[in-house]
Design a binder for these strands. Structure first.
Length: 457
RNA sequence: GUGGUUGUAGCUCAGUUGGUUAGAGCGCCUGAUUGUGGUUCAGGAGGUCGUCGGUUCGAGACCGAUCUUCCACCCCA
C-alpha cells in the first residue's frame, strides 16, 4: 500500500533554489567568521544525554529530543522510577543519547575533552543543525541551523567589542536594512536583585522584566508580584522600565541605581567599555542599544548578553549570545571564561525572503545546454562541452534526440543561461548557434567565441 | 507542555441548513509550430475531500480520536 509521503512537524525539505539561497547565507557568515579569526570545527549531531541535560534550565530539558535506547539497552529502563512516577528519571534511563539542543554546550564539552590539543584563547566557529522539541510557529522549527562563533580562554572585553562588529558586518553584508543589536549584562541584573534585596529571586526578576515589550509595565509588575517580589522592590525596579535616551545616558542612570552593588557596577563598567570602543570604530548599519530588560533564558550566561532583532518585520530574535564564565566547569575545567554569539540561519533566511533581499543570481544552474540533434552532432557537442567545462563553465548535452520544443522547454525550466544548437548545418560549418535565454537573441559563433561570451558575463 | 486554529487537484482556494456525477484560477500534458523556450489560442489529464472510527437512508459538510498547519502562551534562533 502506497504511503502518503510526509516529514515530521517542524522540519523542511529544501529545493535546489532554496539550497542555493541558504549556501549564500552560510557563505556570507563563514567568510565573516574567518575574517575575524575563527576556525571551523564540527561535533556529533547527538551527545550523551548527561552532557546536555540540566544545562538549559528546566524548560530546556523538556525541549531536548531524546534518542531511545536500542536492543538490549532497552532493558536498562528504570522501572522503579516509573513506579514512583519520576518521569524525568525514567526518561533518562530509556535514552542515554540526545540530539544536540545548541552548539555552545557541545563546544564546552569539546574544549574540555581536547584541552591539550588547543591553544587559548581558542576561537572556533561551527555551522550545524540543532534540534528542539518545541511547538513549531512562524520562524520556529524543530530542526534548524545555528551559526556560532565562540572564544574561550579569555575574559577580555575586546571580544565583546569584536562580536558587536561581527553582528554588524554579517547582517550588513546580507543587506538587512535595519536591525538593532541589544546588549545587557547579567551582572547588572544581579545588581538589580541585590540592590532591591531580592537576590534570591534573581531568576524571577529577570524572567519578568524580559517580557516588558510584550506584556507592558503593568504586566511585569503583576508578574513580579505573583512571583513573590516585595512591593518595595517593585517600586524600586519600576523606573528601569522607562529608561530611554542614549546608551551613555542609561549607563549614567544605572550607575546611580546600582550604587552600593559591586557586581552591578562592574556590569555597567563592562558595558561602558564596549559602548566606547564600538563608538570609536563605528557600525555600518546596526544600532547598538543598551536594554536593561534584556535577560535571555539560558542560565549559563554570566556577563554580557546579546540579542539581535530585525526591525520592521515580525520575527523573533535572529541572533543571540553572551558571556559564560564557567561553562567548562561542569565538565571539569573551571576558570575558563568564554563568550560567543549565534546566528539563527533559518530565521535570517525567512527575513531575507520576506523582505526580498536575496541577490537575484544566487542559483547558478547551467551555463550552456546543448540541444541533441542525433548521434553525429552529439559527438562534436561532447568535445565542445569538454572544452567549456575545462574553462570553468557548466555545460551538458540533452540526453536524447527529443523534439526541439521539449528540449527548449527543459532549458527554460532549468533556468539555463544559454542554449547551444549544433544541427546539420552547424555540424558542417563547425560553428555553434548560441541562444541567450534571457534576451532571446541568437548568434552563430565558434567555440572560442562561445567561451569568450561566457567569460564576459 | 497549555489553549485555539487549519487540512478539498501539483499550488492558491470555492463548495449553500447533510442530498445525484466535487468546482475555479494558476501549473502540468498534447496540438496549432517536424530547427526554437518564456507570450497567445484550442483541447486534455489529474481528487479514496489529511487519516481512522462514529451518527445518518445518505457525510467534503455533523461527532470523536489522531496526524499536520498556523496563532497565542511557555520558551527561544
Amino acid at each position: 500500500m502506497a504511503q502518503k509521503p510526509s516529514i515530521p512537524k517542524g522540519t523542511r525539505d529544501f529545493l535546489p533554489d532554496q539550497v542555493a539561497k541558504r549556501n549564500y547565507l552560510y557563505g556570507t557568515i563563514r567568510t565573516a567568521f574567518e575574517k575575524y579569526g575563527f576556525q571551523p570545527i564540527e561535533t556529533p549531531s547527538f551527545e550523551l544525554s548527561s552532557t546536555l541535560l540540566g544545562k538549559y534550565g528546566e524548560e530546556g530539558d523538556r525541549l531536548i529530543f531524546r534518542i531511545l535506547n536500542s536492543g538490549e539497552k532497552m532493558k536498562k529502563a528504570d522501572l522503579e522510577a516509573l513506579k514512583e512516577d519520576n518521569l524525568a528519571r525514567f526518561a533518562n534511563s530509556l535514552a542515554e543519547k540526545a540530539l544536540r539542543y545548541d552548539l555552545t554546550v557541545p563546544f564546552a564539552r569539546f574544549v574540555v575533552q581536547h584541552q591539550h590539543e588547543l591553544s587559548f584563547p581558542f576561537k572556533r566557529y561551527q555551522i550545524q543543525p540543532v534540534w528542539r522539541a518545541d511547538r513549531p510557529q512562524h520562524g520556529r522549527y524543530q530542526e534548524f541551523y545555528q551559526c556560532d562563533a565562540d572564544v574561550v580562554g579569555s575574559d577580555s572585553l575586546n571580544y565583546e567589542v569584536d562580536f558587536v562588529l561581527l553582528f554588524d558586518e554579517v547582517l550588513t553584508e546580507l543587506n538587512i536594512p535595519d536591525f538593532t543589536i541589544k546588549i545587557n549584562n547579567r551582572k547588572i541584573l544581579s545588581g538589580i536583585a541585590e540592590i532591591t534585596g531580592e537576590s534570591d529571586r534573581l531568576v524571577a526578576i529577570t524572567v519578568a522584566i524580559d517580557k516588558l515589550d510584550k506584556i507592558g509595565k503593568e504586566g511585569v509588575e503583576k508578574e513580579l508580584k505573583e512571583r513573590g517580589v516585595s512591593e518595595k522592590a517593585i517600586q524600586q525596579i519600576q523606573p528601569l522600565f522607562e529608561l530611554n535616551g542614549t546608551n551613555e545616558a542609561i549607563v549614567g542612570r544605572m550607575k546611580d541605581f546600582l550604587q552600593g552593588s559591586e557586581i552591578g557596577l562592574r556590569g555597567v563598567e563592562e558595558l561602558e567599555f564596549v559602548f566606547k570602543k564600538v563608538e570609536q570604530l563605528g557600525l555600518r548599519r546596526g544600532k547598538l542599544e543598551f536594554d536593561v530588560t534584556l535577560a535571555r533564558g539560558l542560565n549559563y550566561y554570566t556577563g554580557a548578553i546579546f540579542e539581535v532583532k530585525a526591525n520592521g518585520i515580525n520575527m523573533g530574535s535572529i541572533c543571540g549570545g553572551g558571556r559564560y564564565d564557567d561553562l567548562t566547569g561542569i565538565f571539569g575545567m573551571p576558570g575558563m571564561s568564554g563568550v560567543g554569539i549565534s546566528f539563527g540561519a533559518d530565521r535570517i533566511y525567512d527575513v531575507l525572503n520576506e523582505l526580498d533581499l536575496f541577490p537575484k543570481n544566487v542559483s547558478n544552474t547551467l551555463d550552456v545546454l546543448f540541444v541533441n540533434f542525433g548521434e553525429n552532432e552529439s559527438d562534436v557537442c561532447r568535445t565542445y562541452i569538454k572544452e567549456i567545462r575545462a574553462n570553468g563553465f557548466s555545460s551538458e548535452l540533452y540526453p536524447e534526440n527529443a523534439k526541439m520544443k521539449k528540449q527548449m522547454k527543459y532549458a527554460n525550466d532549468r533556468n539555463v543561461r544559454f542554449v547551444a544548437l549544433v544541427g546539420e548545418a552547424e555540424f558542417a560549418s563547425e560553428l555553434i548557434q548560441l541562444k541567450d535565454m534571457i534576451s532571446g537573441e541568437q548568434t552563430e559563433l565558434s567555440l572560442e567565441e562561445v567561451i569568450h561570451t561566457l567569460m564576459k558575463l
